[in-house]
Design a protein around this nucleic acid. Structure first.
Lengths: 208, 208
DNA sequence: GTCTATAGAGAGATAGAC
DNA sequence: GTCTATCTCTCTATAGAC
């Protein structure tokens, strides 16, 4: 409508559509299972037209990957820096768990999580990024939070990194469980309060 | 050598070889990636010869699956029935964790775990079995153990099922971490004591 | 039970007309 | 930028000789 964006209107649109369709299909069938044929069909164009927008199939995947790991975790720790906010103690953990919960029940984010779990054993890049975010950065930030809590004598002392892992692991486990339940169309409402329960249980084990 | 096994010597041998090769390849490349061609090549026969032993590729997979979930977990709980042995308290949990640790560092079992993680989002059967063993039976038995411990006032009271999940989740998480590290040939010795550390940490949080 | 040969489907990708 | 047409490769599976 405005004067600003003009020229590549349709082109950009198609490229977006391709990415969208590819993401949907890859979340369902994995990289291999999401063939260029199927992607093209889902978009409503021929296979050859795909190659006007991407060099090859792998480039499509890489583009999706790039968006995969611009993770909301960063957002959380930016909005809630552990050095500053961790003195909130249990409340801080509750906020973190709530973020994971939100992601678990968010449609787009579930797609991303599925692609990650589908390709984690196959794609070096996915695995690398997964380890970086799920096992490194997250744990690092969380361990800072626990360190702060220890300093303020909110919790018993111990190895902050171990504590961070112990806190994070069940959240990951529950999130995986939700995804798997969904795939079998099993109800997940029984899991909706599990994140809060986890924080309650965990806090009771470490609080002074 | 003995007189007993005679006739289907070679046949049974080839069938075994096929299963072995298929398992190796599927642990590396997944179901789709382990083509009949590759399996045949690994065995040292032609593709067509495969079909003398199995109706089709899926039957090979199903045969492997059947062996996948004749799990050592059953062994553990048979050898250490929670109703009886859980009064050992922390020691009981230590034994359980040691079993998971063993499985994590056992070559054959790692292959099975990889196949599970590779196909969990693709194969209904794998997912079903996974949920059954990792999320249901295991948790059920463990929750019995925690219930017993509560009754004997070894640990604080609470929901035994939640406690079982909270105890099990990190073990699963660490096992996954080990598998992923291995795939990138990252050293895992730093993780060798993590299972014991988990039990220590967890016990401190629930012990009375 | 293994082989050669081949069918038939689906994959990724390119050439060239419009 | 999209189309038709086509290439080439790989896949699962079968037929039939030995």
């Amino acid at each position: 409508m405005s004067q600003v964006q003009e020229e590549p209107k349709v082109a950009k649109d198609t490229k977006e559509k391709i990415l969208r369709a590819a993401m949907d299909l890859m979340a369902l069938y994995g990289y291999k299972g999401a063939s260029v044929r199927k992607i093209a069909k889902a978009v409503g164009i021929r296979e050859s037209a795909i190659y006007n927008h991407f060099k090859n199939k792998e480039e499509i995947f890489k583009t999706i990957l790039a968006s995969l790991f611009t993770t909301p975790f960063d957002d959380f720790f930016e909005n809630h820096p552990p050095e500053k906010d961790a003195i909130e103690g249990k409340n801080y953990l509750m906020k973190f768990a709530a973020t994971i919960k939100e992601l678990s029940f968010d449609a787009r984010n579930e797609k991303l999580f599925r692609i990650i779990m589908l390709e984690i054993m196959q794609s070096d890049e996915v695995r690398k990024q997964f380890l970086k975010y799920f096992f490194d950065e997250n744990i690092k930030k969380l361990s800072t939070a626990f360190f702060v809590m220890m300093q303020h004598a909110l919790i018993r002392s111990g190895d902050p990194i171990l504590m961070a892992q112990e806190f994070f692991a069940p959240l990951f486990y529950y999130r995986l469980e939700i995804t798997l339940f969904r795939m079998d169309e099993r109800p997940t409402h029984s899991l909706s309060s599990i994140f809060e329960k986890h924080v309650d249980f965990f806090w009771e084990g470490i609080a002074l």
